[in-house]
Computed example of a mutant assay.
Amino acid sequence: MMTSGEIKTYLKRLGITDIQPPTLSYLFELHKAHVQSIPWQTVDIVAGRPASIDIREAVQLMLTGRSGYCFHLNGAFSELLRSLGYEVSWHRAGVQPLGQEPRINSFHLGLTVRLNHDQQEEQRWIVDVGLGDMPYEPLPLQAGGYEQGPFQYKVAASRVDPNGWRLEHDPFASFVGVDYAQETVDCLEEFVPKHEFYSRSSESPWIQLFLVRQRHATGSNELRGCIWNRREGNHMEKIELRTKGQWLEVLGDVFQEHLVNYSKLERDDLWKRVWELHEEWKRGKVRE
């Protein structure tokens, strides 16, 4: 469990000043603040400096102005929620990329929260701050369609796990959906080799892809290398960031990613690497 000081520091980063008892409205406030304030990112992986997914270390990332991807974000958030009195469960999950089949391969850490809603019967909620651009708010673990800003989501039974569930993303999103296993897991051991693959293997999709994602009430932002993809309502825009100054400004002002763990020289080196990868990508597009 987190100390009272750590809880206050975490909440301060989220822009929340008060500690409240576990309620649905407070859960919504925490979730929305988290996805707006702390981005999903592959920065440390691309830089060759991946962070551990140990829960204590993941929490420290959040307390010191840093970030991570699903294992860090959902791991730290689950610890915050538990420290605030919520009943949180971990689940094995898998993200379905475009053009591929659904899977539950433990390459994603899923969360659910059990909560009594308005003194009525107990309900379970899908909580996920580790997917980058979805969801903005918790979703009830109940089949149906859900609208959050310009995004349309769907909760359905999983075809991979007959007792599990599936969260389908918006039709215009970067991936198709996520499948979750019903069974819960009590430790992160299952996910460690997956993190090792993601963060160190030459076959990892993230090793050479600088990617930062953030969700807000009316849309989302994604920085893919040097391409800033903005979605505001139903309007989508791509902006190429051609200078280090533009790139750092968007990282800090839009994504709240200030690269606090990197010196000026290291930021310069990171920009050079990302720009080189961007130029390589553009040459590939021309050949196509």
Rank of each mutant, 00 (worst) to 15 (best):
W271S: 01
V254R: 04
Q60F: 02
F28I: 02
L211E: 02
L115S: 13
E257A: 09
R114F: 10
Q182N: 06
N229A: 11
C187F: 06
E203Q: 15
P102E: 14
T184I: 01
Q152K: 15
R13K: 15
D44F: 04
N234F: 06
L109F: 10
D253G: 13
V185F: 00
K264T: 12
L24C: 03
E6W: 03
H235E: 14
W125I: 10
Q182P: 00
P171H: 08
P162I: 12
V35P: 03
N229K: 15
K32W: 08
I7W: 06
A47Y: 02
L259C: 00
V129M: 05
L63P: 01
E288G: 06
H72L: 09
Q256E: 13
V155K: 12
K12N: 10
F175T: 05
Q214M: 11
C70K: 09
W228K: 08
R200D: 10
P22D: 10
Q120E: 15
L188C: 09
S52W: 11
Q142A: 10
V113F: 00
N116L: 14
K238L: 05
W125R: 01
S4L: 15
S174G: 04
V35W: 12
L27H: 00
V260L: 04
A47Q: 05
T42A: 11
G75L: 08
L61R: 14
K244D: 04
R213H: 07
